[in-house]
Structure formats: structure tokens, C-alpha cells
Amino acid sequence: MNKKVVVIGGGITGMEASVQLSALGYSVTILEKESQLGGHLKDWTVLFPNLRKGTEIVSFLEHGLELQEVNVIFNSKINEIKKINKHYEIIVEGRKTLVADAILVATGFDLFDAHRKEEFGYGIYENVITSYDLEKIFAKEGEIRTPSGIKPKRIGFIHCVGSRDEKVNNHYCSNVCCVTGVKQAMELKTLIPDAEIFNFYMDMRMFDTHFEELYLESQKKYGINFIRGRLSEANETIDKRIVIKVEDTLTSRPLKMTVDMMVLLVGMEPSKGTKEIANLLNLKMRESGFLKPEDDHTMSNVSNMPGVFFAGTCSGPMSIKYTFTDARAAVTKINCFLKEYELQNRILVN
């Protein structure tokens, strides 16, 4: 009989890992809490760094699942996970108990709730939106309008919202916001060629392949402006425009600027689901709440519980590319474990 793997979470990571595990001959079940697969990806219209459509990636993943006939249980709520000898019993509300020889946690991230940065006015001033809201505006047909209904002439992007910020207890960098700011600025400029667009940043962390080139292109070809200063507070004017207050740190002077629309580049947080599963399985977490591997370099997908692995953004912020890579890396590790290869007992000498 095929060994069974239960994958918790049907986002990019869960989907890709399931396809790969299934191809290796395991019997795979995805537990998805929602009624459809694709996680956050289905909400993003165009992806960095090559501006391809998000739906293309989703269909690629779905195609894999179809080819491998992976079993998916939608709207599933896990009540309990029991370790019995070498396998796990997963009790899903209103369903038959699942048995797993290995578990892959792929519970992903939640977007930072921008309401928590009260001084930025999200949910208070209508023309303050998040990068996620902007994707929804992009998805709509027709001309771009601010929530107040005007064609924006000046737009500000705010980096590091909910990231690198002790005030919201998130000390880490969310990896993808810098490049998202560049990508979205370029899209907006394409749609509204006469708009002035500003990115307010602390560091432009364009670390990955083609990110820096995209940054250069946004300046050269699109004339996007970059100001080194972190948003301190935003206020609304009487005509519902937004006043941005930063320090122009490279001139050491405060700067204020009124924009028609302000976009908050919201970071990633460990998802609620990640925390729930971590509690059910007694998984170690970092201070940030992301899952903690047994070793940062050599065991990045291995949890403290034998037979429980994790991949994707439940262990920390990462881009789509790394999510794929991480899913496949976890599959290798799970395969090693289920096949009981000697390799999995490699020793790390401290």
C-alpha cells in the first residue's frame, strides 16, 4: 500500500508539493480550509519580476493536480492531530479521520492588517489603500480611480508596512514588498502615464534575479521616484487627499507631500492557520511566530516532530519562486523520510 501524506494548506506550496509527492507515488490528500485552491495567489493579477499573470501560475498548479489526481478536501477544519506510533491521525470536523505517514504543513501567511498602523489611516481615510487592494483595482476593467473616484495624479507607495517594525512586533523583513512597490508603480504609470509616483523606502532590497533590473527600468523608463524616508504618519486634507510625512533622510529635512492615493505595501505575518497547526502539533515557532526548523541551513523544512515537515511562507516570508523551490525541497526531505534513507540521519557536528 502507498504511504500517505497529508498536506495542510492548498496554496502554491501545498499544491506544488502535492503534485511532486504524488508523482513519487505517495497517496496525497490536501486539506484546504477554504472552498478553492490557490491561496493568496489568486488575488494577485500580475506578478513580479516579469509581469506575468497570476492566473497562469494557478492553472499550472491545477493542471499538475489534475494529472496526478490529488485528493483535495475543501472547507476542512482540523480539530485534533494525534501521533500514534509512527503515524498521525488527523481529525477533521465532520469527516472520516485521516491517517498520515507524514504531514506537510503549508499553511502560508496572512497579510499584515494595515489597520494596526493607526497613524497611517487605513480604514479611516478612504484614499489609503494596501498593495492588496490595489491588485483588486487592477483586476477591474476600465480606468484607474481612487476610492474617492478621481483619476489620481500623484500616488505614494509606502514600504515596510508591518515589517521591520517593533511597534507591531514584527522585526523581520517581508522580502517581497520592495519589488511589489516597484512592480505596482510601473503598472500604475502604464495606466496613468501623467501620474507622479513616489516610493518611500528605507532600503531597496532588490536581492533576487532581475529585481534590480526592474528597479532600474522603473526609474529609466517609467520615471518612478524614490525617496529614502519611512512614513511617520499620514493625514487627510479637507478634500480627502493624503498628506505623507517622512524625513527626506538624504537631506536630513522633514518632507511633506500631498497625494491623491497612498498605497501601503503590507508585509507577511504567520497565518492564523499556521499558529493553530503549530499548537495542535507542538511545533516550535520563532519569536516572529513563523515555524522554526530543526536547523536553519541543513534542515529548513524539518520540524521538531518526526514525520512533520513544512514549506513555504509558514516558515517565513518568501516570493513565489522560493515557494516553489521550498515546496520541492520539502518533498525531497519527505521522500527521504518515508523511504527511510540513511541520508536523513546525516549528522551535523556543532
Binding site: 537631506t251 529635512r253 522633514p254 518632507l255 511633506k256
Partner: peptide, 14 residues
């Protein structure tokens, strides 16, 4: 009053 009102140093981009 023995003083005048300081002028702002802020960059008022608008």
C-alpha cells in the same frame, strides 16, 4: 516680543 516666528525647514513638496 524679543523674537520673531521661526520659518519652517520642512520640504513642502506641493
Amino acid at each position: 516680543f524679543g523674537f520673531t516666528i521661526n520659518k519652517p525647514r520642512v520640504i513642502d513638496y506641493d
